[in-house]
Amino acid sequence: MILPEADELLAPVMAIDGFRLGCLIDGSTGMVLASLGSQNGPASPTAAAGAADVINVLNLLNGRLATGEHLEDVMVTFSDSFFMVRPVRRDQRPPILLLVIMDRQRTNLAMAHRSIRDFCASFTS
């Protein structure tokens, strides 16, 4: 993470039950800005790069479909974990993405979704 001073920004998402990893990513370059995670958790550079790829592909899809919609978030379910990626604010330039990885057995997905949405909403100037 290139802005380690910004790690503290992610402290609120650590309160989510089952939290494993949180990252702030510059969506335009794929650079990890800040990262906070439990020990022995997923590797943040790989997870962040994968999240940036997913958002890139979905933005290309949206660009081609041209429905006038915008991407709010992406939820991915693995056998043991949930991945959630969300742009922290619409029209933010550069686009900053929040990636949160959670333990599937310990996380209430609806509550986590709400927490992440609220976090992004509060994470504004």
Binding site: L3, E8, D26, T29, L33, Q92
Partner: peptide
Amino acid sequence: QLLPLPSLRQLTSMLALTEPTI
């Protein structure tokens, strides 16, 4: 020592300096 960052605006301001450097 940097102080804790309270807002997205300040994060993007940091990025505005860091990105050209990288």
